[in-house]
Simulated scan of single mutants.
Amino acid sequence: MESCVSSVESILKYRFGNKKVLEEALTHSSCTESASYQRLEFVGDAVVGLAFANFVYLAYPSVDQGILSLLRAANISTEKLARVAVRHGLYRYVRHNALALDAKVREFALAVESEDELAAIYGGAVKAPKVLADIVESIIAAVYVDCDFDLKYVWKIIRGLLEPIVTLETLPLQPVTMLYELCQKQGKQVDMKHWRKVDTNICSIYVDGKLIATGTSDQKDIAKLNAAKEALEKINKSVINNVGIVYEVNEKNEIESAKQKLHELCCKKKWPKATYRIEKEVGLAHEKKFMCSVEIETAEVKLFMSGDEKSRVKEAENSAASMMIHSLVESNYL
């Protein structure tokens, strides 16, 4: 255990006066012959939260409490702290008698190597084992106790450990702010509902009373970010134009059920019904392809558009209708 204590001191760049407190911080509850880190983890959870609250309060004097809360949550979530344990190798120095723990930690550590920066906030492909965050919190508490509960000094020690810190400039607030801005422009009401299930925070987002996304996390604010991100992803696959026609676009930028959507559009704009015509047939009978055109008459002008070649007439008509809708949007007819 002495070598483990020395290694962690090197990582922290801090020498403990009472090394027993660090030994306790590095002892899992599966080691029943010694005191575990659970009491220290309890203290560390509060210490790291208050330390970050102080930091963001002083760093951003003009930012409201909602944004400050998001900044703190992004930096002290289980996902973020677990990655601190992996990045600095702190998990290697924990003594335990739980074989299953090694496999979970190893799987997570491998996943962290190939993930992007947002995974620390939203979570990656592998859920972070809570034990990793607990280790970081217990070590922080050990420093706090050893330096006679000096929070300012603790922050000097742990700030480097917790880098990269999510700042106002790097916090991905867009999912929340963009969702509200987008729906506000469209005259739609956004409601977020929060609740807890065991240790998990759940946030559901409703737009005009309809459930469109749900996010989860151990932190309430991160659950909200996750839900907003999912909501935006769904909305970004849809287009809502000025007359209220909602349509989804596939990976080829083709509008799903375009013929029906164009019909709805003509009805709402009180334009005559769109007319379709087969412009071209190519290929042998068993592999024939069709190209269709569509014509609509607005209050000002007649518009004509041809689609791509398709193996079925219905698909060719949808292609023409899709191009017509895109053209109407780009030409500001909608």
Results as ranks from 00 to 15, higher is better:
R83M: 10
Q65K: 15
D134P: 00
A141W: 05
V239C: 08
G215E: 09
F52P: 00
Y122V: 10
A316Y: 05
I202D: 08
V86A: 10
C266H: 05
H28L: 01
T214K: 04
K280Y: 02
N54Y: 06
D64C: 14
R39Y: 02
V94R: 03
E113P: 03
F108I: 09
K210N: 02
T167L: 11
V294D: 02
K197S: 13
E2D: 15
M192A: 11
K268M: 04
T32W: 06
L132R: 03
L40G: 04
S238Q: 14
K19V: 10
E41R: 05
K197Y: 04
E107M: 13
I296L: 13
I240E: 12
C31E: 11
I325V: 13
A128N: 05
V63C: 09
Y37P: 00
P129T: 10
S30D: 08
S34W: 13
L232C: 13
T200K: 11
V154F: 02
E287M: 13
K185V: 06
I121Q: 09
V126N: 09
S69G: 15
Q184Y: 08
G123A: 03
E254C: 01
A142C: 06
T27I: 06
I76F: 01
Y276E: 08
I240A: 07
K20E: 13
S293K: 07
K268W: 00
K288Y: 12
K19C: 07
Y180I: 13
K302N: 10
N318Y: 06
S327W: 10
M178I: 12
